[in-house]
Computed example of a mutant assay.
Amino acid sequence: MAENRVLWAKKVPQVYKKLDEVDQLLAEHLDITVLELIKLRSSVLNGCAYCVDLHTRRALKEGESQQRLFLVPTWYEAGEIFTPRERAALALTDEMTEMGEHGVSDETYDEAAEHFDETELAALMSAIAMINLYNRLAVTGRLHVKKR
């Protein structure tokens, strides 16, 4: 198993900088809570320990509760722990992250569209796509979580 993989952000820092700029622009359109929840959920689905650690820490720093963070992997069974808006965002995250041959269902898309205006929905979809990109780069590069 090769452990000396390319750290993409160090080899193409200009790309990392541009992606970070896009991330910052998207954050202007979405609540930080929703943003960190979808980033955490996608990272869990993609098996990206580095990003799970990063977004858990960021969410805690922003005031998110441990209970809600612990329940992100099973959000669909957590009842009213998550708001309808958050549940719609998490459902869209699940379908965009695990995109099967039929893509995102009309039901899931329509539910998200009920809770987010068009600009927010566009930002949400873009943020989900971005975290999937980051997850794939981190997993492929085998970024490891540092023990604290």
Rank of each mutant, 00 (worst) to 15 (best):
E111H: 04
F116N: 08
G79S: 11
L133I: 14
A91F: 05
D106I: 10
A59Y: 02
T119L: 12
E80C: 03
G79L: 07
L45R: 04
E101N: 09
D53P: 01
A91W: 01
T108S: 14
H102D: 11
Q66I: 07
Q67C: 05
R68I: 03
T33Y: 05
A89Y: 06
Y134G: 06
E80I: 00
V104A: 13
E98K: 12
D110E: 15
E98W: 01
L133E: 13
D106H: 09
W75E: 04
F116G: 08
A27V: 01
L26K: 02
S42A: 15
A49S: 15
E80W: 03
A123W: 06
L37R: 03
L45S: 01
A78Y: 06
D31R: 07
T56V: 12
K61N: 13
H102A: 09
W75C: 09
T108D: 13
A59R: 05
M99A: 12
Y109L: 14
T83L: 10
W75Y: 14
L90G: 07
H115Y: 09
I131F: 11
L45F: 01
M96G: 11
E111P: 00
L69E: 06
R58H: 05
E21V: 02
Y134S: 14
L137F: 13
Y50H: 12
D106Y: 08
E98R: 13
E64T: 01
E64D: 11
G103D: 10
